[in-house]
Design a protein around this nucleic acid. Structure first.
Lengths: 326, 326
DNA sequence: CTGAAAGCGCTTACAG
DNA sequence: CTGAAAGCGCTTACAG
């Protein structure tokens, strides 16, 4: 079912069919009708591969995330989708699972010209190999800092936010504040840890304990908390870098027969729906997830439309939400 | 950076370059070396559009979900990915948000020949328009029944599972069992409702109350539960068709000053991690999510490799998990 | 083992 | 307003 067949059916040239398909130019109404009729009759759908090969644009953008199951991620993706849709772009989601082979495989869509650009929510800064593959294709890092100035990024000030959380905990009299962090290959993880440690230092608190979760799931948060609970002395507060981790931590605390916040205060991060669904409700840092996603699209389209344009680094506002857990 | 340039650089024909790219045939070692060298030097990446246009296959499959934020969905997707990877296929995720325009837009990847087949976790059975677009492209419906025999599907026996849940509730003395269901355009929603009603009927319970959640989020579950609580008399048990809905329902109950399970028993569905993270832990029906995803890929590949093969409908086992909430 | 050539299904100057 | 033709970057018989 090619444009050829339609042309034959409608008794016009392929050029004319193409013109009505792109509703450009002025095609004589009678011819347009005939083409439209032929298209309908034969249930014709243009071949995107051929079209994109010819025009060298796809109006598609690749979104690469490490873990779609993380609700924060899902929210950002929704923001990306909404904005992309407005601008006439379609989203392709690629779930890397933080796996480098998977990531490379996903990136082939970019290098293979199937998409016009890429938004990543993954830890790429530490992976020169992946950066090399992307080359200078349009790229923006989302909810994660870019190390170099060459790539655009949108996020919040992670150091500030972490400092705020830990200060809040210290202000309320907590002495032994632990951190449940994500893999340090994420720049945001390094930044939040820096915020955490700086407050400990300034306040002259000498308890310091960091556990690393392999992924942002509640199960990983629970496992991390169990390790913290096994320590002597155990923490009286814990800051988890995502709501999912915090929810898991709360469960571990409860299972150990302890109370949140009486025995251990818990603070999460992201401000997802999950934070309101757990009990007690979670104190957290709300990120403007949808807006981060929308902004990422905006930055990306700027680069797609003008590849020579300079990279931008956008900082969004965050908000501390105090609830029952801390 | 085309195959032409590589050929020029290596001093061979494009055919030879193509041969080493597809590491087929027997290319003379010396030539292979030269081509490989040229590729490395110029950081060449083949254009997928051209390749796929020519070969008429992409080794990619489209996965269409209504809501990636639903953890059950995310699990199934992981199962799909694992299996696809094994078979040399790549996954493209498309988030329809249950929106018909979005779905149509996503489907263009199929009709436009960018993917070899599609797995849907969406409510397509009620949408002849979408079914028409798919035509007879390889398609399997996942965790959702297919109405007609023409399309393959994998899922569980939803009627049985729902009956089991409601019977369990009735057995434990609950008199007023409510249902929080999803949009009835989903076949599984209709089936579970049928299971619910049949038990009510057999047990001669005359209380019957169904609320519909617009999406499978905790917020929607909470809103639905609030409506149920406003009724006179209020239910003493509620069966929600997903763990996310159930988690929201528990929250509404708690906020109303009532206790789970003492005042109202709650049962979820899916058996996701979330069910273990809420408090009290959720009684639920565990679906074999990963296996469902893997099976879907298997069925799809069968159709891709042999388009003439007949559609299959696979039923997987489910398991009732009794925990504190009911 | 290798190359010239055709062709996948489109779009787009160009000429009329 | 329309058509013939070139070309996007590949792969693959075919002939040698």
């Amino acid at each position: 079912m090619s444009i050829q067949k339609i042309a034959r059916l409608a008794g016009v040239s392929v050029a004319t069919v193409s013109r009505v398909l792109n509703n450009s130019d002025t095609v004589k109404p009678k011819n347009r009708e005939r083409v439209l009729q032929a298209i309908k009759e034969s249930n014709y759908q243009p071949n995107l591969l051929a079209r994109q090969l010819r025009t060298a644009r796809s109006s598609m953008i690749l979104v690469m995330v490490s873990n779609i199951a993380n609700p924060f991620c899902a929210e950002v993706v929704k923001g990306i989708e909404e904005q992309a849709e407005k601008k006439g772009y379609r989203i392709l989601l690629c779930h890397s699972g933080s796996d480098i082979e998977r990531s490379k495989s996903g990136l082939r869509l970019l290098t293979g010209k199937m998409v016009d650009g890429i938004i990543t929510m993954d830890a790429f800064s530490k992976l020169p190999e992946l950066k090399m593959i992307i080359g200078d294709a349009p790229w923006v890092q989302c909810a994660e800092y870019a190390d170099t100035g060459a790539v655009s990024c949108v996020g919040i000030n992670d150091v500030d936010a972490a400092q705020h959380v830990v200060s809040h905990l210290a202000d309320s009299g907590r002495q032994r504040i632990a951190l449940i962090n994500h893999d340090l290959s994420y720049k945001y993880a390094r930044l939040r840890e820096r915020g955490y440690k700086s407050v400990l230092h300034v306040r002259e608190l000498d308890y310091q304990s960091v556990e690393y979760a392999a992924e942002l799931s509640s199960a990983a948060g629970k496992a991390a908390m169990e390790k913290l609970l096994a320590q002597q002395p155990r923490p009286d507060a814990v800051f988890a870098v995502s709501d999912t981790l915090a929810a898991g931590a709360m469960r571990a605390i409860e299972q150990a027969g302890l109370k949140v916040p009486q025995d251990i205060a818990v603070v999460g991060f992201d401000g997802t729906e999950l934070a309101e669904m757990v009990s007690p409700q979670l104190t957290t840092v709300q990120q403007p997830s949808r807006e981060i996603g929308a902004k990422a699209v905006e930055l990306l389209l700027k680069r797609i439309e003008n590849p020579a344009s300079v990279a931008e680094r956008v900082m969004m506002d965050w908000r501390f939400i105090s609830r029952a857990s801390a």
